[in-house]
Design a protein around this nucleic acid. Sequence first.
DNA 1: TGTTTTTTCTGGTTATACCAGTTTTAATCT
DNA 2: AGATTAAAACTGGTATAACCAGAAAAAACA
Lengths: 237, 237
Amino acid sequence: MTFQKLHTPSLKELFVKELETRILSGRLAIGEKLPPERELASSMEVSRAVINGGITELAQKGFLLIKPRVGTFVADYRKEGTLETLISIMNYNGGTLKNTEISSILEVRLALDSLALRLGIPKMSEADIAELSKITESIRQAADIPEACRQAFAFQHQLAFLSGNTLIPLIFKSFEVPVATLWERFCQLYGIPALYENTASLLKYIKQRDTNGAIAFLESYLEDTISGNRPIYYENQ
Amino acid sequence: MTFQKLHTPSLKELFVKELETRILSGRLAIGEKLPPERELASSMEVSRAVINGGITELAQKGFLLIKPRVGTFVADYRKEGTLETLISIMNYNGGTLKNTEISSILEVRLALDSLALRLGIPKMSEADIAELSKITESIRQAADIPEACRQAFAFQHQLAFLSGNTLIPLIFKSFEVPVATLWERFCQLYGIPALYENTASLLKYIKQRDTNGAIAFLESYLEDTISGNRPIYYENQ
DNA sequence: TGTTTTTTCTGGTTATACCAGTTTTAATCT
DNA sequence: AGATTAAAACTGGTATAACCAGAAAAAACA
């Protein structure tokens, strides 16, 4: 069991979390006007700078709408929300994802990974493939689950990068946190070797420049994961 | 011709833009350490609050990495970047997109819209379709190009929402700005009626519950747009 | 030379004050 | 009394100065 460094939250982080909780739980209704910064600062006993910074951050995340010299209002995060919002929602639920969200992530991942494979496989150089092999090996040698998940993400990110499509890596990066959570769950259920095996299988298809095979493999593998079945590829070891 | 309200940039916005420009142009190299906040504040003749707020915002965008009590460093936005970063890059290029980015957006849009159609068409209610029809009509009646693009985005967003996949609408929302830019370009080239015709055609397939037809239409339509050909559907009016 | 202590530097936070639009209230005029 | 106008209150944006505590570098010490 590994432990990561304890992180003392800053006042701003505490404030942001407090407001996120209130908004996501509905205690702060959508459209409602927040108390003025000065009032929040005095009642929560922090400086106005903390409140101002926190409100700015929450506005960026799509939770608040700042109207200068008028007031700050709770935004409709269901309509204005971005991927940042998803991460906040996840944190609100104690770092867990609901089944609908798990399915959603896997569906999107399948669609985008397929696209990355279709675009990338024909144009990959031997050096590119060697890089992917190196990352795959890192998964096998990972000391703990978080490290293995980091490497699995690196593989996916590199694959997205090699597609030549400039958007796919950005999208994956945008929801790195939820995806990493999924992989941690996967590893806790099936172990790191299963994660390695799946990645290695995919790499095999890539090496053979077998685009359709790679996509078909990804489909069956992810669909098994969606439906909750144990991936069969683990037994092939 | 419509004019929108002039917006006086705040000092923080000016600072953020200045640093984004320096980073994207390469004048601030990746990994480089920024001067301390106090120094930046005095040399740029603004308060430390402006610098602190701007740096926080840039860190959220993936341009900077703040190490408390150590310093602030230029992050590798090509690896750490999110969709927020893309918007900044676009603004840096004067609101335009390079051809590679246009292709990237259309490819991703095709992949995700196809997924949304495949998931959504079987489960849509008549009320859902009526809502889509209403938005389509709004495109036709739009007074100017920005309004038409807003409605086109609303159509896509609603379609993503109706898929039942909770992630797709968030992704689209995340890169609303670049996509809107693309549509503006489309409308300037082919006019609002072409945008309406395309949307109406897609809606027709949806009404007929013809998933494969809808996807096939989307493919040909977007691929024509990728390759730069004039969409043929305009002539079908 | 290697360790310990001290100093310096850094972002985080506090406190107070002023600015300039916005909104509300009060005063003024018809 | 009702409409118009002027003053006041309110709000987020910004400026300034100061202190805190952790990290890094320098100095002192063994």
